[in-house]
């Protein structure tokens, strides 16, 4: 849920990275954090287990620049991907403005991808959002690995509606900023449309 502050002339929006466990949501945020100018970012917070699995969420505040004198700030969150953290995932979706679904391109993770997309749809629905209406992009991550499904196949299974999609290798940054820009743009367009 966006927050428009006339007093400080700021627009704040919330973007959530969703996807199955170990698909690279945190890695996306870490890359954005590493490559962003210090003036444009806040501290990245990771609430993780001792084995560096996301326990509750990762959080990264980013400034994108100004639109007509309003500073645009995006708060990026990830959810914990592991199936049993569903209660936490629901909480993080509260007030979301845009969603990135990070899919693991490996063939053996296809079922996990499908389960996660379905879980996203259900959890968004519980918050009163419709996955078919909310600003939404899909990222096919881990394209550098040997055992990956074709993009056509991934699209058929995960993105039948044909929302903007990006191929990525998150640790090296391939596709990371393209994905972020795409969702940020959709969020701002939606704000303008709903204004």
């Amino acid at each position: 849920m966006s927050f428009i502050n006339y007093s400080s002339r700021e627009i704040n929006c919330k973007i959530v990275y969703y996807g199955p466990g170990l698909c690279g949501k945190t890695t996306n945020l870490q890359y954005v954090y590493a490559k962003t100018n210090p003036d444009a970012k806040g501290k990245m917070i990771s609430l993780a287990t001792e084995t560096e699995r996301t326990l509750f969420f990762d959080f990264l505040p980013l400034s994108l620049g100004e639109i007509r004198g309003f500073k645009t700030r995006f708060h990026l969150y990830t959810v914990p991907g592991q199936v049993f953290y569903d209660a936490s995932r629901k909480l993080i979706l509260k007030g979301v403005d845009g969603v990135v679904f990070v899919a693991d391109s490996q063939i053996e993770r296809m079922e996990a991808n499908l389960e996660s997309v379905e879980n996203l749809r259900v959890n968004l629905g519980e918050q009163g959002y419709d996955l078919d209406k909310i600003p939404y992009v899909v990222q096919y991550n881990k394209r550098d690995l040997p055992n990956v499904a074709t993009v056509d196949e991934l699209r058929r299974l995960i993105n039948p509606r044909g929302v903007p999609e990006y191929q990525a290798v998150a640790p090296t940054g391939v596709g990371v900023f393209d994905t972020l820009k795409a969702v940020a743009k959709l969020v701002l367009t939606e704000l303008k449309r709903g204004a």
Partner: peptide, 27 residues
């Protein structure tokens, strides 16, 4: 705000990372 956006701060907030505080409070 319950979604983690800072609305206002008052007092000795200069040395605090209020953005992180806001997000963790909401969490």
């Amino acid at each position: 705000d319950k979604n983690g956006q800072l609305i206002s701060s008052s007092g000795q907030a200069q040395n605090l990372d209020t953005t992180s505080l806001a997000s963790l409070t909401a969490g």
